[in-house]
């Protein structure tokens, strides 16, 4: 697995500081190891820039093992790059050809304003969770965990929805900039489990209202979100949320 290197050009969106309006800058990188991760390639680029006393490219990253959801780049038109079910930090340079020009842009959506270069503000996701993405249980109120049996497949289904890492790739991928996959994954995770069923009617209305308030677009079932989601969350969750929402608004006495 060792040894191979490639030469590439990286065309990166720079915004802020020297680039008040935002523009692309192209950088040459020589002898990039193919075992390098995509972010490590950026580390190398940034070391180059720092050695020239320039501002490094700002990009967000943290765990670098595909679980924190911090990294947020659109690589050659795809959030998190070309590899399916993979976050940017787990993408490796072996996915690129020698001599390639790689275009890297920030996640684009009105509700994800650019902070600097490739860094965007995703606090709208927090607002959606705060609107109702929880089960109202205080610490210490819980009964024994085994008092609520949950059928294995049901539990697995809830888990599949719960694997969302809140990275925002769904919004970035969506031609409508909708946040349906994110919101529905949470709605679905909680509504699928008996613990969460209790307040599911209120929850779905509150979360959908908040999602709308945050200015996200509307879903037209293109399913680009599912295709680009690093955790491969299914759009079945969106159907479930639609169902939950309509049932709640039309079929219950709850008002969101």
């Amino acid at each position: 697995m060792a040894g191979k290197t490639i030469n590439i050009k990286v065309k990166v969106w720079r915004q802020g500081g020297k680039y008040p309006k935002g523009q692309f800058e192209t950088y040459d990188l020589k002898d990039v190891g193919t075992d390098m991760s995509f972010l490590e390639m950026f580390d190398v680029l940034n070391e180059q820039l720092v050695s020239k006393k320039e501002m490094p490219v700002a990009f967000e990253h943290d765990c670098r093992e595909g679980i924190c959801g911090t990294c947020s780049m659109v690589i050659d038109g795809q959030p998190h790059g070309p590899m399916k079910g993979t976050t940017t930090c787990q993408l490796h340079m072996r996915s690129f050809k020698d001599g390639a020009t790689i275009t890297v842009e920030p996640f684009r959506a009105k509700s994800f304003p650019v902070i600097r270069d490739l860094v965007v503000d995703r606090s709208s996701f927090d607002a959606i969770i705060q609107a109702g993405g929880y089960i109202s249980v205080n610490t210490g109120q819980a009964q024994d965990a085994n008092a609520i049996p949950i059928e294995k497949d049901t539990s697995e289904k809830a888990f599949d929805a719960a694997t969302c890492i809140g990275c925002g790739a769904c919004v970035a991928a969506c031609p409508n900039s909708a946040a349906m996959l994110f919101t529905s994954a949470k709605v679905s995770h909680l509504a699928t489990m008996p613990q969460g069923k209790v307040e599911s009617q209120k929850r779905v209305q509150a979360m959908v209202n908040q999602m709308d308030k945050e200015g996200f677009g509307m879903c037209s079932n293109i399913k680009a979100c599912e295709a680009e989601c690093p955790k491969e969350i299914s759009t079945d969750n969106i159907a479930l949320m639609n169902r939950e929402y309509l049932a709640s608004v039309l079929g219950s006495d709850k008002e969101g």
Binding site: W13, F24, V74, D76, G77, Q78, K84, T103, E105, R108, A109, K110, S111, A173, P175, N176, S177, A178, G215, F216, G217, M218, I222, K223, A224, E226, A227, E228
Partner: peptide, 14 residues
């Protein structure tokens, strides 16, 4: 809601 367009447009696989 979409705002700025991507420079590289690519249809998502699938």
């Amino acid at each position: 809601a979409t705002g700025t367009k991507y420079a590289v447009k690519k249809k998502s696989p699938g």
